[in-house]
């Protein structure tokens, strides 16, 4: 049961980590980074670290994505292709 959850979240995490690097659109990369952070927090719960999972979900998926998106808007890459 726990092993299945760990395997699924690892697959989601590595898939979205690949997507971060190979998406053309920068905003899509930021969204993929947020998905990777959420899958990582699920994995932290499986590894018996609920405090770290809470922090990762709040800080990694929330604040980090917000500051990245604000930077993209500031430097004009909001809808640009690389």
């Amino acid at each position: 049961m726990l092993f299945g959850i760990a395997l699924i979240s690892i697959i989601i995490m590595l898939g979205s980590a690949f997507a971060v690097l190979f998406f053309e659109n920068y905003l899509a990369s930021v969204v993929a980074l947020s998905v990777m952070s959420l899958a990582l927090s699920v994995l932290f719960v499986v590894l018996q670290a609920p405090d770290v999972a809470l922090t990762e979900a709040a800080v990694g998926a929330g604040v980090s994505s917000v500051i990245l998106a604000l930077t993209l808007r500031r430097i004009g890459l909001w809808q640009d292709k690389s």
Binding site: F3, A6, I10, L14, A17, L47
Partner: peptide, 14 residues
């Protein structure tokens, strides 16, 4: 052991 193996490989991949 399976969970540890999968997590180590995920960390190495990242």
């Amino acid at each position: 052991i399976g969970i540890q193996l999968v997590s180590y490989s995920g960390a190495m991949g990242l």
